[in-house]
Every structure is written in structure tokens, then in C-alpha cells.
Amino acid sequence: MSTQTVVGSTLTERWRVLRWVLLALAAIAAVAVLSTLLTSPRSGGPLDPGSTSADGTHALIALLRERGVTVVEAASIADVEREAREDTLLVAAQTFHLFDEDLLDRLADVPGDRLLIAPIGRTREALAPRLRRDDVTEYAGLRPGCDLREATRAGTVQFGIAETYDATGPVRVTRCYDGALARYTDDGRTVTVVGSDGFVTNSQLLQEGNAALAMNLAGTHPRMIWFAPQFSESDGAPGGAALPDLIPRQVYWLVLQLALAVVLLAWWRGRRVGPLVAEQLPVVVRASETVEGRGRLYRSRRARDVAAEALRTATRQRLLPRLGLNHAASPAAITQAVADRCGLDPQAVAHSLYGPAPADDTELVNLARALDDIERQVAQS
């Protein structure tokens, strides 16, 4: 048999083995990718009913459907107008794309009751004209404080930061949670406004009373339309709002004042301290000379207590990792660990590590030797 035949047979056998290994690796990679795609969270915008991220509302929508509520996920105003009926609740969740005047006017003409979640001024004025913004407060475990059935059944709710509302005129408004939840009836239509959107999101739905209140408010009708627009339908037409349009004018003045204050403070401190000067060190000092200089300073001041405490502290810091202890260990625990490790008398170890200050230089030298001996025995044990 020739050498070429032997080499060819060997390569063929190796390729057959390698082929199965590559196929197995490819199958494992395919299964891993498929599992990742199937189990990974579905991303989306804020209050998106199909999003499983922290600020999505997929969990609430799933709970409402399990409860028997027919949920219509409207992606556009055309979907809302097509699905809206007198017996259907319209839930309008405020997003960055719910600002267009034409969109709000069309929503105002949709029949049925309304539930507005964290509406801004323009949305509230168009869809809940009988309410005005009252205040902004941070709530933590607030009680209902009203006789509204949806709120009393939910009990205490964790809203976070929420706006509060009050009536704009002679209309009877039911205010719960100090005004963070307001409801009124006008021309046969019930309008409910909640000043926070955190209680309906996936991340905060499990907090105290949040799920109950969200389901009670959104599940009052057998059929519900969830409208949280994730894209702008204005296509740049007048009335569409960009992000700068959403910032109140007072914020710009506040930022300008803060910037001016920072500039004035920097100018004042700069004149007081003077210009920065870059200086190089005149000489490089070795670590050994630094230690000797500090020792002479301690000796000139007869600061044997300070020197002894510095030696003991340094020794304990080096011993702790070797003993498997942390910096929160008590003196008794450190002493016992050293005694068990080296077979020494615990009282002698405690005297060396935590004893009184030396009375003279001889005792200080003996303490340094004792600490060095303890550290050496622990390292060698």
C-alpha cells in the first residue's frame, strides 16, 4: 500500500469524525438561538400592550383577557374609530405620540366611556375638559379615601410620582388617593383620569394594590380598547409635537438660571484659588526612607502609642485574608483564629494584637517582634 493511499484513508476517517462533531455543534447552536428567540422579552415602547419589558403592559392585558374582557389593541386612531362603541371602554395611555391636535379631536368624538392614564395638559383638555391639574406629589402606599368601588376594592396603591386633579367648574368629581384618581360623568359619558402610569406597567403591577386597581378600572366594561400609540400619525403635519415641545417653558428658565449660577460660582472660586500651576516633584523618595522618617517622627514625639497602633493595625489587615476573615470580624474572633492556627495562648495573642500601649522603646521593639512572629507563624501554618 502506497503512502498516498494511507494518508488519504486517514484524512477520510478524520473528516467523517469531524463532520459529525460539526453537525452536533451546529445543532446545539441552532437550538440555543431558537430558545433565545422564543424566551427573550418582547421589546416595545412605553405602555405597549405587546411589550414584556419593564415599561410595557403585556401582563395587565393578559390578566384582563383571562378575566373575560375583550381587549382590542388599537395601533392607530383609525383602529379606535372602527372598534369604538357605546358599550366599549376607551383606555388612552399617554405616550410621546399622543399629542397631535387632529388625533385628540378624533379621539374626543369616539363614543363610550374613557380612561385616561397619565395625560398631559393637551390630552387632558381634549379628553377630560372638566378636570384641571392640581398638584404633583410623590405617593407611597396611599389609601383610597373615597367611595369609588374600583378604588375601595383595590385598597392601598403604590403610585409613585403622580399628578392630582380637581374640577374646573360646577361638576361633581369623585377624587380618590388625594386626587391622583378622578372620575366624573358628563353627557352620559364616564371619564376617569389617573395621574400616574407606573401602576399598570409590568415592573410595578405586582406592587401593593396596583394590579387590583388597574384591573378594576380597565375591566369595568366587557369590551375595552387599549390605545397607546407607538408611532406618530401626523407625518410632520402642523400639530405634531416633538420632544422639545413637551418640555414646559419654566424648565428652560430653570436650566438657564442653574447654568448661570454654575458659571458665576466657577468664576468666583477660580479667582479665589488662583490659576492652576503644574509642578513636578523635586525628588523621588523611596518607601523605606518614608517609613524611617515616620519612625523618627514618632520617636521624637515619643508617640509610642500611635506607633504601636499603626503596627497592630497593619498586622491585623495582613492577617485577615490569611485567616479567611473580613474587616468586620471582632477582636475575639481574630484572636481565637490566630490561636487555633498557630497553637498559641489566646491571651498572649490578644495582648499582642489589642494590648495596651508600650511604656518605653524596649517594649515597642518587643511588640514589633511579637507581631512579626505571629504573622510569620500564620503564613507558614
Score class of each variant (00 low, 15 high):
Ala329Gly: 03
Leu311Thr: 04
Leu254Arg: 07
Gly293Gln: 04
Arg304Ala: 08
Pro229Asp: 05
Pro275Asn: 10
Gly270Ser: 13
Leu320Met: 09
Tyr252Leu: 10
Arg302Tyr: 07
Arg223Cys: 00
Ala242Gly: 14
Met224His: 00
Pro346Thr: 02
Leu323Val: 00
Arg296Ser: 04
Arg316Thr: 14
Asp340Arg: 14
Pro321Tyr: 02
Ala339Met: 05
Trp226Asn: 06
Arg272Val: 03
Val349Ala: 02
Arg322Met: 15
Gln257Ser: 13
Ala307Ser: 07
Arg302Met: 08
Val349Tyr: 00
Trp253Gln: 12
Ala333Leu: 10
Arg322Asn: 07
Met215Gly: 03
Ile247Asp: 07
Val262Phe: 12
Ala307Lys: 03
Ser330Thr: 15
His327Met: 09
Pro244His: 09
Ala333Gly: 02
Ser232Gln: 09
Val291Gly: 12
Gly293Glu: 09
Val277Glu: 15
Leu217Trp: 02
Ser300Val: 05
Gln250Tyr: 11
Met224Thr: 15
Pro248Trp: 08
Leu256Tyr: 11
Asp245Val: 08
Val255Lys: 02
Pro222Val: 11
Thr315Cys: 07
Leu265Val: 15
Leu246Ser: 10
Arg294Val: 13
Leu260Tyr: 03
Ala350Asp: 12
Ala337Phe: 02
Val285Phe: 04
Ala228Gly: 07
Leu311Cys: 06
Ser300Thr: 06
Leu265Cys: 14
Ser330Gly: 07
Ala212Gln: 10
Val283Asp: 12
Arg341Gly: 06
Gly295Gln: 11
Leu265Lys: 04
Ser288Ala: 15
Ala308Asp: 04
Thr220Gln: 14
Ser232Ile: 05
Ala328His: 07
Arg302His: 12
Arg286Asn: 14
Arg286Gln: 13
Pro238Glu: 08
Ala287Met: 09
His327Ala: 12
Arg271Trp: 07
Arg304Met: 07
Ser232Trp: 06
Arg304Asp: 10
Arg223Trp: 04
Arg296Lys: 10
Gln230Tyr: 03
Ala314Lys: 03
Leu256His: 06
Ala211Lys: 02
Ala261Gln: 03
Ala308Thr: 04
Gln280Trp: 01
Ala314Leu: 12
Gln250Cys: 02
Ala214Trp: 00
Trp268Thr: 15
Ala337Pro: 02
Ile247Thr: 13
Trp268Phe: 12
Arg272Trp: 09
Leu256Met: 09
Val255Ile: 15
